[in-house]
Amino acid sequence: MSDPKLVDRLERERDTEPGDHKMPGTVVLTALLLLCFVVYYFANWKALADVWHVR
């Protein structure tokens, strides 16, 4: 017998989730990723500036 829940899930994948979406957790996770990126990117430019002096 098919598991109706799983069949339903696979069928739903083709559609788009309707209506307004509440996803504050994902927004915070994304902001955290961007913050990590900014810190890492800046640290690397700083490390480059320390060894590659522009006169």
Binding site: L33, F37, Y40, N44, L48, W52
Partner: peptide, 19 residues
């Protein structure tokens, strides 16, 4: 995302890649 993505974009920058 957090490890592969962040390091990838940084290392793929032409100037940073030199170090």
């Amino acid at each position: 995302g957090f490890i592969g993505g962040i390091t990838g974009v940084t290392l793929g920058t032409q100037q940073i890649n030199i170090i």
